[in-house]
């Protein structure tokens, strides 16, 4: 088994929250290409892991496999092992899709509480926390708006807020800020790095963030997994110092061949 060592200095509680081994995913029925090829990874509590790689290399598929959301057309091979922390009989995971996935018929407030409601969290406590997060996410005053009345950046922040509010230990974020203009994106990133997502849960959580933006990865993550493909393989794991690391950035660009 080839897992990549975590950076222990960020390892607040120690526990492994997700571990995949020999994860091979292909199209059901054996036709078509292999999408993930023998991927191994492990994510520990307290870690912020970024996954970078070229478009189509299988990043979203990897995240979906961890969330238990492989589409019916895809299937993991027999030898694949993927263990994810569970709580209350469900995966202790909150997944944020590449598109924001807000329910158009619910107001911002109700959309935000969706995760907490599904997880069966105490409503009053969640609402207190939601009010606090609306403030922190810069969404205060937008509680009663419909999703279509929010800007692209606000929609992404709302989707992220919903994911955080589910209070799961493992957050799986699929390009939370893709499709935003460079300026907004940069603002989102510096804001996200101040937010300390890993510290938001009371129970020791971890974040896996998919992106194809190396700067975003270096800025936010403790560790960056580099993928190549298709077929998707993890080719390296680069530790970074939080808040910008020129050396790690150069290494990543080199690995990605840019």
């Amino acid at each position: 088994m080839t897992t990549f060592p975590g950076t222990d200095r960020h390892d607040r509680r120690g526990g492994v929250l997700a571990e995949a081994d020999r994860l091979t995913v292909g199209v059901r029925g054996g036709t078509g290409p292999t999408i993930l090829d023998d991927v191994a990874l492990s994510v520990r509590a307290g870690e912020f892991v970024a996954v970078v790689g070229p478009s189509g290399c299988g990043k979203s598929t990897l995240l979906r496999a961890m969330a238990g959301l492989l589409p019916p057309s895809l299937v993991a091979s027999g030898g694949a092992r993927i263990d994810v922390a569970t709580g209350g009989g469900r995966r202790d995971v909150a997944w944020m899709p590449q598109r924001d996935g807000l329910l158009p018929w619910r107001r911002a407030w109700s959309n935000a509480l969706l995760g907490a409601r599904i997880a069966g969290r105490d409503v009053a406590a969640s609402e207190v926390r939601a009010a606090e997060l609306f403030e922190r996410f810069g969404l205060a005053g937008a509680e009663r708006r419909w999703p279509h009345e929010l800007s692209g950046g606000m929609r992404r922040r709302l989707a992220l807020l919903r994911t955080v509010l589910a209070d799961r230990r493992l957050l799986l974020l699929d390009e939370p800020f893709s499709g935003l203009d460079a300026l907004t994106r940069r603002r989102m990133n510096s804001w996200l790095s101040d937010l300390d997502l890993v510290g938001t849960s009371t129970r020791g959580s971890a974040v896996v963030l998919v992106t194809h933006d190396v700067d975003e990865a270096v800025l936010l993550a403790d560790r960056v997994l580099v993928m190549s493909g298709p077929p998707g393989r993890v080719v390296d794991s680069v530790a970074t110092r939080k808040g910008g690391d020129g050396q790690a950035r150069r290494r990543l660009l080199e690995l990605l061949g840019v």
Partner: peptide, 13 residues
């Protein structure tokens, strides 16, 4: 919308 169904499942639904 399968995206919305997946969101619900992805939050543990």
């Amino acid at each position: 919308d399968t995206d919305l169904l997946d969101v619900v499942a992805g939050l543990g639904g």
